[in-house]
Design a protein around this nucleic acid. Sequence first.
DNA 1: TTGGCCTTGTGAAATTCTTCACAAGGTACA
DNA 2: TGTACCTTGTGAAGAATTTCACAAGGCCAA
Lengths: 208, 208
Amino acid sequence: MKRIAESTVRRLSLYLSFLEQRERDRVNTISSDELAHLGGTTSAQVRKDLSLFGSFGKRGLGYSIPELSGKLREILGLEKQWRVCIVGAGKIGAALARYRGFAERGFVIAAVYDSDPAKLGKKWESQAIRDVANLAKDALSERFDIAVVATPPESAAEVVKVIVEAGIKAILNFAPTQLTVPSDVTVRAVNMAIELEGLSFALTNRAR
Amino acid sequence: MKRIAESTVRRLSLYLSFLEQRERDRVNTISSDELAHLGGTTSAQVRKDLSLFGSFGKRGLGYSIPELSGKLREILGLEKQWRVCIVGAGKIGAALARYRGFAERGFVIAAVYDSDPAKLGKKWESQAIRDVANLAKDALSERFDIAVVATPPESAAEVVKVIVEAGIKAILNFAPTQLTVPSDVTVRAVNMAIELEGLSFALTNRAR
DNA sequence: TTGGCCTTGTGAAATTCTTCACAAGGTACA
DNA sequence: TGTACCTTGTGAAGAATTTCACAAGGCCAA
């Protein structure tokens, strides 16, 4: 299959969230134009994105919402349950552990780690916080699919080393640090500083 | 000036963070090639990005780190102090309020809002949590530049309405909702579901 | 069954973004 | 001062992404 751009995948996620909303409202059909408006893009873009994976629509009618959302879930790999471990039991880790949208999309928080002795063993949303020193060992038996790095920046590199050695192939990084990983490991980074600086740039350079 | 792509601005932020790191290590000069390696891009990309704003390097030598980081701060608008208000005093709001990198980049948390009566008035990193009903009024006198939306998704649209009416032109959205704003308001969204789904896609479709 | 209407799927064009490749300019050292 | 060596800045080429525009297919009502 052709390589799919990251921007395309992001849009697919967006489309899916709109479809789920409409699903709840008991609407059965949606056109590429409607989807485009919801997502701030164009109908041609929507159709192009979807056509990379097949022909899901009916000419003259649009897309069946249950069918298309099923297809999108399949494309995005959301039919499977993904086992996620969170490393770093700070505020960000807490926000993630509590985030509802998670479980309903098939992301199971399988473990939470920290290195602070004061936190170890504390219960957190039904998870006891474990010692990060056990991560490598646990990974052998618990098969984590995704690791979330929510540590301070200075520990991130070290933690990532452990994660990679444990054979985990996907990392969501919240630490404001550039990670180095082998090419078979996928990293997505969420960096608040970069987002804020983007806003700062926009405010500074906007037309007056 | 030519329109600058969002991807370019993101890279500029990254470059700046590398420069600051090097600055702390008392290194004086850096080549586009080094910068490229740190950021996972190419030297040509680095030079192209910078050349959009001027000629900051010395041929044969590279870039002066103090000079370039100064220029980048200027380009990104980080010389000014930006006044930020956070709406939503949950875990994400808390993580933001405590994030150190913030103040040192000139982002001042000027106020924190919530609508939960149980939280109002509580002190939070030297900020009393205020009632979101006062946001519009406060904005008149306190001139917030940036609003961070960290509410549950169902309140986001309403909160954004208030923010826009208050004349705030930049929004950082953590709610998993597509926001609708006038074209003179810049929005950056951080959506954990989209990032995780991107990882799910990568895991599902990776070469075996 | 026919005709009008609507929306998809998709080549081709346009645009945007990235990489190439090299002249120009500057350093450093003999 | 001259020469060898670097690294920038940048047109031009190339790649990727988005938009255009329209034929093809399907619904619906008469």
